[in-house]
């Protein structure tokens, strides 16, 4: 049986890891390659790198970083942040990334999912979807959570599955940085709706929150950032706790 995954997420700017609380107030948490290696050694199942660099030199810096990470670790990793072209995806995968996560670009150009899945396989295409509650409705946000769209959360998730995405990385902006747990209700509904793996993101503050997301919402993977970066929670301790509570994890 496939194990439930624990995925540290590293927000990267100019090769360094930063993590925002509710997407603002960035605090430096270390070198991306060093942290990647540490997490790989500590038993992370995968890593996600979100590039938030805004400069023109961005692509080149990111490709160099991806090459270094691919040399340093022997577990799969996903790269996201500002990817909008098939050629960008090809370069990142060739540099050693296993998957790319697409967010703003697929809202603007949904066909990109289909084209990327056809060329690289759907297992390489992660649809990253940021949702927040607006007037009691889950709306999809783009541009790092700064811009609201007309799209409704669940229907957009279903759409990306139909278009060929291999996985959904769902970030609940209403929970992000709060440390009071994943949005279990929304994730449960999402998990009922789609047949591709779902990664939960936003709100993790304790081991119990991971257990809740796996046991109640049946998600396939849980992502967290600052909890791991600032050593509040050790991956090994978390996995032992999950295993003791009946969740299949890789130890």
């Amino acid at each position: 049986m496939v194990a439930k995954r624990i995925i540290p997420c590293l927000d990267v700017k100019d090769g360094r890891v930063v993590k925002g609380v509710n997407f603002i107030n960035l605090i430096d948490a270390g070198s991306a390659v060093e942290l990647a290696k540490r997490y790989s050694d500590e038993g992370a199942d995968e890593l996600v790198f979100l590039d938030i660099t805004a400069s023109v030199e961005k692509r080149k810096t990111l490709l160099e970083l991806v090459k270094k990470i691919a040399k340093a670790i022997r577990i799969p990793f996903t790269v996201g942040g500002g990817i909008s072209e098939l050629t960008d995806i090809e370069k990142l995968l060739k540099a050693g990334a296993d998957k790319v996560s697409l967010n703003t670009s697929i809202v603007k150009n949904p066909n990109l999912i289909t084209k990327a899945a056809r060329q690289f396989g759907s297992q390489a295409v992660v649809a990253a979807i940021d949702v927040n509650i607006v007037n009691n409705v889950y709306k999809v946000f783009i541009k790092g959570g700064r811009e609201e769209t007309e799209l409704e959360g669940l229907s957009w998730c279903k759409k990306v599955e139909e278009l060929g995405a291999g996985e959904i990385l769902l970030t609940s902006m209403n929970k992000d940085g709060t440390k009071d747990g994943y949005d279990v209700d929304f994730l449960s509904e999402l998990n009922e709706l789609v047949r591709i793996p779902v990664i939960a993101s936003g709100g993790a503050g304790s081991k119990e929150h991971f257990l809740e997301a796996f046991s109640k919402a049946s998600v396939d993977a849980c992502l967290a950032a600052s909890l791991f970066h600032f050593d509040i929670l050790k991956i090994k301790d978390l996995k032992e706790f999950l295993l003791a509570n009946g969740i299949v994890v890789r130890l």
Binding site: V2, A3, D45, G166, R195, D220
Partner: peptide, 14 residues
Amino acid sequence: DETKTKVPHMGWNN
């Protein structure tokens, strides 16, 4: 079979 399991099969398996 998508009606029986998640597809793609993604992750660590024994």
